[in-house]
Design a protein around this nucleic acid. Structure first.
Lengths: 237, 237
DNA sequence: TTCCCCAAAATTGTTGACAATATCGTTGAC
DNA sequence: GTCAACGATATTGTCAACAATTTTGGGGAA
């Protein structure tokens, strides 16, 4: 479940990273949200040094932005970043499925099908949080099964960005694309049809990207500004 | 010149990262070399905390490996990592040149040609250190000119790995491929011939990769083992 | 009222000392 | 003579107090 694991270093720091990442995925933390160090220390019951390390890692990954001497916020990537991330994902993931077409074992196929079944279940029960999370995990699963550690690391960085973009620009919480497209990719992999798998992957990613292009320009940027929008311009006091 | 710059955060930490990276490129620091914190503090005249931060960043980038409670060493990627890095580079850089074919301004072309001229000069004067460094910088320059911040960051990670691999597995210090292949890529970009540019890039990277496949298995891993190899199995005492 | 300046509060950044852990050399027993 | 356990040393990991910076609030003058 925590697929944001770097190495077996300090477990607490990984926990902090995972929790923040999870909170972003399930929309509890929106892009632009402030992350005060002291707040995090008492939440996780640790010291400020740990929190600081975790934030540094998350900054490297692109999940948070650290403004020197002014604190850390959930990153707010622009449309440019979105397009970069999607095009890079396309390049990386096409290579991943090509690889899987050649090396996939029956167990790998079974694992993928099992994952899609979970997606379908979540979809059926209307658990939109799980749908989003599992949808992302599917792509990470492909990277894991292809056995390329480095490509997985890169894909993680890219997925973080596309997830942030989704959180920022998508109108409705429920993904429009169900697990069907994932299924088609797996079918192509099972058939060892490399070009077909690449084609399906391209189609899938384009679908994902186009789903949020719609609301490109005028969307929520930070929780603060969002709040200001729905409030009267004059406070009480 | 220092093309390993993240953000305008702390200048000293970037300096440390750059210097270590440079030392690796010019073979002063070999893969597997030990990096003691205290040593680095007195070299750079800073505190241990800074050094620690720099090492953490370099670990994220894949340049060093941190063994918990045991210190940091220059990373020693395996052949697997090499192949991953090269295939990912191919995917990313083909996208970059495609992008440049569409967006390159005359100034961009001039910048690239100027860089190649520098490469030629270094080649002519036999400055193998500059040749290696400039050869890497050429690819980063393409990423910079294409204007994709994210792709540049990813390419940096990949270049670090391939450079490490080169340092580990290449037999002779002088690169076999001169700036000619770079020139061909620029020609294709100038002609706006996307497929040709991709083809040239693929050819170039394959050339780079094949240049070190030769000595695949039995090559220096760490300075220690290397020393042991050339020594009699029995110590003196 | 509106603007500017200055002090207080809150937050981040840094430092140095201390604790935990691994490595190395030595001693002692077999 | 060899091996194992132990203590000394060196190195990394952690923490809490201190310093620097930014933000906030209030008072005074135009």
């Amino acid at each position: 479940m925590p697929w944001l694991t770097h190495s077996t270093k300090n477990e607490l720091i990984n926990l902090i990273c995972d929790r923040i990442w999870l909170a972003v995925v399930q929309r509890t933390l929106r892009p632009g949200a402030r992350l005060k160090e002291e707040e995090l220390t008492e939440i996780f019951g640790t010291t400020r040094a740990r929190v600081r390390q975790a934030l540094a890692i998350l900054e490297q990954d692109g999940l948070v932005t650290i403004y020197p001497n002014r604190g850390a916020c959930i990153a707010e990537p622009g449309v440019e970043d979105a397009q970069d991330a999607f095009s890079a994902r396309l390049a990386i993931e096409q290579r991943l499925v090509t690889r899987l077409c050649r090396s996939a074992s029956p167990e790998d196929i079974a694992t993928l099908r099992d994952h899609i079944a979970q997606e379908r279940a979540a979809h059926a029960r209307g658990d939109s949080e799980a749908v989003i999370r599992l949808s992302g995990e599917f792509h990470m699963l492909i990277a894991k099964l292809s056995g390329a550690e480095l490509l997985l690391k890169i894909l993680r960085m890219l997925t973080i960005r596309t997830s942030l973009i989704t959180a920022m620009y998508q109108t409705q919480a429920t993904q429009t694309c169900g697990p069907d497209e994932h299924d088609r990719i797996v079918v192509a992999i099972e058939a060892r049809d490399e070009s077909q798998a690449c084609h399906e992957m391209a189609h899938h990613l384009e679908h994902l990207e186009s789903a949020l292009r719609l609301s490109e320009a005028p969307m929520p940027v930070s929780a603060l500004r969002e709040a200001l929008h729905s409030m009267a311009p004059k406070g009480e006091t």
